[in-house]
């Protein structure tokens, strides 16, 4: 998908691609944006969640990554050799990936004059992910053939930077 340069969709794409390319050296494309839908989370999939504290934007940003792709991400991030990553290494790498992504998203969205705060990442696997409320957009992305999902609160769209 190609987005108008100043659109919020372009901000999300730029933050996502900048983070994924620089941390795990993979290309990401956005497949679609879907309002109020929750991702299908396989039992083995990894998720991470970060709470955004108001002002200026509140809500939770969530990322969901399939297990095999998460292993690849961690190996790339940590420059690992033949040994597959440990579960705690995957968890820590995903938390750091989302932490970096959230920072980029907020910095690009709220502009230079607002400070912003967010919580520490919570990480889990499979259906332990809370799926409550319908106040978000699901961003369906592809890294090669693997889907990764990003859940972004609607306040990201509603916030007025002026």
């Amino acid at each position: 998908m190609i987005f108008p340069p100043d659109s919020l969709e372009a901000i999300i794409f730029n933050a996502l691609s900048e983070t994924v390319e620089s941390m795990v050296f993979e290309e990401v494309v956005i497949n679609q944006f879907v309002a109020n839908k929750w991702p299908q989370v396989e039992n083995s999939a990894w998720w991470a969640c970060i709470e955004l504290f108001p002002p200026p934007i509140s809500g939770e940003v969530i990322i969901v990554v399939p297990d095999a792709l998460m292993n690849r991400f961690t190996e790339a991030t940590l420059g690992m050799g033949d040994e597959p990553p440990l579960a705690e290494e995957n968890a820590d790498a995903l938390g750091e990936l989302l932490n970096t992504l959230c920072g980029r998203l907020l910095a690009m969205r709220v502009g230079p004059t607002h400070t912003f705060r967010m919580g520490l990442p919570k990480i889990g696997r499979g259906d332990t992910m809370t799926q409550e409320g319908n106040n978000h957009k699901l961003v369906d992305c592809l890294v090669e053939d693997d889907h990764i999902y990003l859940v972004v609160p609607n306040q990201f769209w509603d916030f007025n930077a002026d």
Binding site: T19, S22, L101, G103, R104, L106, A107, T115
Partner: peptide, 23 residues
């Protein structure tokens, strides 16, 4: 990952020598 211009001003006032945005 939290750095923008507003925070940079605050951090500089606290005596930070250099600031880098993640990644």
């Amino acid at each position: 990952s939290l750095v923008n211009q507003a925070l940079e001003i605050e951090l500089n006032s606290l005596g930070v020598n250099s600031i880098i945005n993640k990644p």
